[in-house]
Design a protein around this nucleic acid. Structure first.
Ligand SMILES: [Mn+2]
Ligand SMILES: [Mn+2]
Ligand SMILES: [Zn+2]
Ligand SMILES: [Zn+2]
Lengths: 151, 151
DNA sequence: ATAGCAAATGCGTTTCATTCGCAATAAAAT
DNA sequence: ATTTTATTGCGAATGAAACGCATTTGCTAT
């Protein structure tokens, strides 16, 4: 409908060709509150009646990630790469070991720690990745009996 | 030689059978300053004249990890799982994007942050994983021209 | 609009780390 | 020493992701 809606344009502006598939994939990720695997995206497209090859989904998320429209994340414990719409905010993740839901955390407690570390190690720090594991309110009750691993 | 040397005994005490392979694997990891992949362990055993099947290495590190004698880590950007001798110290990692060397960091800047987060989110926090990316002193010069991604 | 070119797609094939099945072997228990 | 049970070797299977190539589509410059 809305031709000037960000998403489709963002793809064009990125230098990638603006195809139906890429637009749909980016929209799906933008709407999802959870990062998704390539296969989940593929299945959702199927549900929406959009025929696509799984290879294409893999190639689409890869190119979108290259253009920074999508972020790829590898959370320990899942062997599949997750993709999320890049909302351009530095984020961390709180992963529930019970239901595997991923909750984003806006606050970064490491801002000045990075500087200390740079001074101490003489490294040039580019960034960091922090994932916190635990049990969400819903899963806390079961957690007591089935404490799952996280490392 | 030293029958009471920690490593071999630790395996026995863990409930696992104390085999030559497991002992060697654990010794290799204990001596290594870098976490190693299953294949690297396998190759090193070959160099040391110890015939072993790669499957066995995979099964050994898996069982040793289960018994907490080794720790498995999945650093973003490598598709292979790394294993390290478990020195029973909470650690973080500083990964050089130039040479891929991994340096352990003893200090944890997140001790009380976890409590704040628990209070704020009502999650039961089990732990966290922090990886910091950058360029080591040796690689800093090249870093300027070839800034690699870290996700 | 149209032609021409570069990029994207479909479909099948391949790669590669890791896992598995099962018979043979070695370690612990008796 | 004999039995019991876990470990190993080897090859085959798995599964996510990458790839090759012929076909199609989006974009650009007429
Ligand atoms: Mn941060
Ligand atoms: Mn920590
Ligand atoms: Zn949960
Ligand atoms: Zn380096």
């Amino acid at each position: 409908m809305d031709k000037s809606s960000g998403i489709a344009n963002d793809i064009g502006r990125s230098g990638l060709k603006r195809t139906k598939h890429r637009t749909v994939i980016l929209e799906i990720l933008e709407k999802s509150d959870q990062p998704m695997t390539a296969e989940q995206i593929f299945l959702k497209m199927g549900q929406e009646g959009i025929a696509v090859s799984l290879s294409t989904v893999y190639r689409a998320v890869e190119s979108l990630a290259q253009k920074k429209l999508v972020t790829a994340l590898e959370i320990s414990g899942s062997n599949k790469t997750l993709f999320e719409y890049n909302r351009k905010i530095h984020r961390h993740y709180l992963v529930c070991l019970g239901c595997r839901k991923i909750r984003a955390i806006a606050h970064c407690p490491l801002k000045d720690y990075e500087e200390d570390l740079a001074a101490e190690t003489d490294y040039l720090i580019s960034g960091h990745k922090l994932v916190i594991y635990g049990y969400c309110p819903d899963c806390r009750k079961n957690a007591a009996m089935t404490p799952k691993e996280w490392s």
